[in-house]
């Protein structure tokens, strides 16, 4: 036997073993409740995860997982919609112009601003919130998918060069617990700058 307990008397007592098992469960429970569950799932009954700053990580992980699932079903629905409405949805009035849209984002709300552009055309853009950082993803989903930039900031500006013909836009998600106002200004050759419903 490889257990090194050659005689019965060398074995730890039944009570000691039981105490050790309970101790292991208690230690595991403490680690789970204070760190693992807050950090992985945002579950934080003790409030310690919040203190350690781990709950936020769990909240975001859970949110991202939900968003991914939502985005996947959304994409399937959009593909169907687009194939029906594509021909009449494409605007033709591409001209050099300026535009500005202001949106209010409630706590945890996500909204998307879209613009139509032709491949290779450029617009300059500038956006900012009235306070905290917002999660954003600038991308196109017109046939080809491409992400221009992504992150969490309270302002950003730059040049967007259309990767392909079609819709390009900014998805904004307010991950804070407070409402915020966001303003996006663009200038260049584009058509039909509006919020995507």
């Amino acid at each position: 036997m490889e257990n090194n307990h050659s005689t019965n008397s060398e074995l730890p007592s039944a009570v000691k073993l039981l105490k050790s098992t309970v101790l292991a469960i208690v230690i595991a429970g403490v680690i789970l409740v204070t760190t693992v569950l807050p950090a992985e799932y945002g579950i934080d009954p003790s409030g310690i995860g919040e203190m350690l700053g781990l709950k936020r990580m769990g909240d975001i992980k859970t949110e991202l997982a939900q968003e991914r699932i939502a985005a996947e079903s959304d994409k399937n629905a959009k593909v169907e919609q687009m194939s029906i409405a594509q021909s009449d949805a494409k605007p033709t009035n591409y001209i050099s112009q300026k535009g500005e849209i202001k949106i209010a984002l409630k706590a945890n709300e996500g909204r998307e601003l879209k613009v139509f552009m032709k491949k290779g055309d450029q617009i300059s853009y500038e956006w900012s919130t009235d306070g905290e950082a917002v999660y954003f993803s600038a991308h196109t989903d017109s046939g080809e998918e491409f992400t221009y930039s992504e992150g969490s900031k309270n302002e950003d500006k730059g040049i967007l060069k259309a990767f392909c013909d079609g819709r390009h836009g900014w998805w904004y998600k307010n991950r804070t617990q407070k409402p915020m106002v966001l303003t996006l200004k663009i200038e260049g050759k584009y058509a039909d700058f509006r919020e995507d419903y």
Binding site: S20, A24, I27, A28, L32, V36, L37, E40
Partner: peptide, 17 residues
Amino acid sequence: VALMAGGFVFVGYQLAG
């Protein structure tokens, strides 16, 4: 005992998931 505690953490983590 430490190994066992680690095992319990893993069980709890997966069951919660």
